[in-house]
């Protein structure tokens, strides 16, 4: 493989890793608050449609991005209502959201298949994009990719250095103790689930506004499930999520390039790679199951009302 090809591969890695990164951070925030949301896949496709629709009707990519986020937030709201207020089973509610999201997108989105929008185009950062090697890899993408560079730092700062972030962590670990010191566990869980939904919504918007500019249903293509697995892979830490997201983006981009450069490896094997990697990662993180690899203490456990 030539040098140019490797640069192109790494640039494609960033390109295809970005939506996974947004979704992984969204799910991570939700789980930090103690709620497991398996609806990521469905939320992603609904928000991809919302973003596309709004961008198509208003002509503004930024409004589209916002709409994608809000759609994710609303879907997160449904999950929060079911699990926090009604004490519904988190797994069942999440799966229902995935099925609902896929169906809704199919139903509403089918008439628009094949239409295209302007969306976000690559934005060359002055100076940075001219850097050798780093420029073409990191600084010739759409603005959403640049946002995704800052996001893990913000996420880390929010969880570790702000009152709200620490309160969410406390509710995720032990809601009863958090309530005892005067925090409002339900309200905090609502916040974690809807804010996490907003981030997942941004990943959907990235798919329909920056990844491709053509609408079709089924854009999420399993990326939501990969994000759920990556949260475990990342041990609920934002910077490890970056590594995981780019690892998956890289494998997806690599298998296509390996085929294009003419290889004897069966294409089915290459197409299987990202999914085989998911299984491997889950096995490894379970096997190395030390204390630090465990999730929030109250993850998946609903807050029962006292008395």
């Amino acid at each position: 493989m030539s040098f140019e090809l490797i640069i192109a591969l790494l640039a494609a890695t960033v390109h295809s890793g970005t939506p996974i990164l947004f979704a992984t951070l969204g799910e991570m925030l939700t789980e930090k608050g103690g709620v497991l949301n398996l609806g990521v896949e469905g939320m992603m496709s609904v928000s991809a449609f919302a973003a596309f629709m709004i961008c198509l009707t208003t002509g503004s990519a930024w409004l589209g991005l916002l709409a994608g986020g809000v759609a994710g937030l609303l879907m997160g709201g449904v999950h929060a209502f079911v699990t926090v207020n009604c004490l519904g089973n988190q797994v069942v509610s999440g799966l229902a959201l995935t099925i609902l999201g896929g169906g809704l997108t199919e139903f509403m989105g089918t008439p628009y298949i094949g239409t295209s929008t302007e969306g976000f185009r690559p934005l060359m950062l002055p100076l940075l994009s001219d850097l050798p090697v780093l420029g073409p890899i990191f600084f010739r993408h759409s603005i959403l990719v640049y946002i995704s560079y800052i996001l893990p730092f913000l996420f880390w700062f929010f969880m570790r250095r702000t009152r709200l972030g620490l309160a969410i962590t406390a509710v995720g670990e032990m809601p009863a103790a958090a309530a005892a010191v005067g925090l409002k566990p339900r309200r905090l869980r609502w916040f974690a689930v809807t804010a996490g939904g907003f981030l997942v919504g941004l990943s959907g918007a990235y798919l329909s506004l920056a990844y491709t500019h053509l609408w079709t249903t089924g854009l999420s293509g399993g990326r939501g499930w990969i994000a759920v697995a990556l949260v475990i892979f990342a041990f609920w830490r934002p910077f490890r999520a970056v590594v995981g997201a780019y690892l998956f983006g890289g494998v997806m981009a690599f298998q296509l390039r390996l085929q294009a450069s003419g290889t004897d490896i069966a294409p089915q094997f290459l197409l299987m790679l990202p999914y085989a990697l998911t299984v491997l990662v889950l096995v490894l993180s379970a096997w190395r199951g030390t204390r630090r690899s465990q999730g929030p203490g109250a993850l998946g456990v609903n807050i029962e009302p006292e008395g």
């Binding site: 140019e4 192109a8 981009a253 294009a260 450069s261 197409l271």
Partner: peptide
């Protein structure tokens, strides 16, 4: 480049880009 799809704009566009890169 095989995609094993009949309709997946994201993957099919990516596959075309990988061919252009090659």
């Amino acid at each position: 480049v095989w995609t094993n799809t009949w309709y997946d704009p994201v993957l099919e566009k990516d596959a075309a880009i990988s061919l252009l890169d090659a």
